[in-house]
Design a protein around this nucleic acid. Structure first.
Length: 164
DNA sequence: GCCAACGTTGGC
DNA sequence: GCCAACGTTGGC
């Protein structure tokens, strides 16, 4: 019989955001340093949020389509998946008429900023660092906005960023 | 601005 | 169920 009180191991994630739209500093400045990670419209990313993300999971906040590109800060999942209300709003750019209130297609998690990296870790640095060869964001053609990170990768990137 | 990569859509 | 067309992503 599974022990439902057993806390599962913390997982780690890399979340992409275009800083022109929403940067790590924006998250830091938000109320409670927290935001709803809304607007995700990719099923694989949705499944990670819905099925795999739990409160306390570590998040690397990655700036894409920016100068520079790379990891800006560390955050954490502060609330597990719940419906993405932007999907119901016809005036929202992420409106999805196929998502119904009684059967939401899309979900969000809450993400809270924990620490800005003393040293911004650029994409070039990630590429040049042993141990990060399998990091999904380094893969050619990778477009997934939410990808899992191993505990080992998490530690390496934190250290690159100047955290103990 | 370019373009490769990839997910989604829709005709058949 | 196939697959070409299309739209989007994202590094450069």
């Amino acid at each position: 019989m599974p022990d439902r009180t057993d806390a599962r191991a913390t997982r780690y994630w890399l979340l992409k955001s275009e800083p022109n739209s929403f940067s790590f500093d924006d998250l830091w400045a938000a109320p409670k340093r927290t935001t709803h990670w809304d607007g995700v419209r990719n099923f694989q990313a949705r499944n990670f949020m819905r099925d795999d993300m739990a409160v306390g999971d570590g998040v690397l906040f990655y700036h894409s389509s920016a100068e520079p590109v790379g990891v800006a800060g560390v955050a954490e999942v502060s609330r597990a998946a719940y419906p993405d209300l932007t999907a119901f709003d016809a005036s929202d750019p992420h409106y999805d008429p196929k998502s119904r209130r009684d059967a939401p297609t899309w979900v969000v998690v809450d993400v809270r900023a924990v620490k800005k990296l003393p040293h911004f870790v650029t994409l070039d640095e990630l590429r040049a660092t042993p141990g990060l060869e399998e990091l999904q964001v380094l893969r050619r053609g990778n477009r997934l906005s939410i990808t899992p990170v191993t505990a080992a990768e998490w530690e390496i990137i934190r250290r690159l960023g100047g955290l103990a």
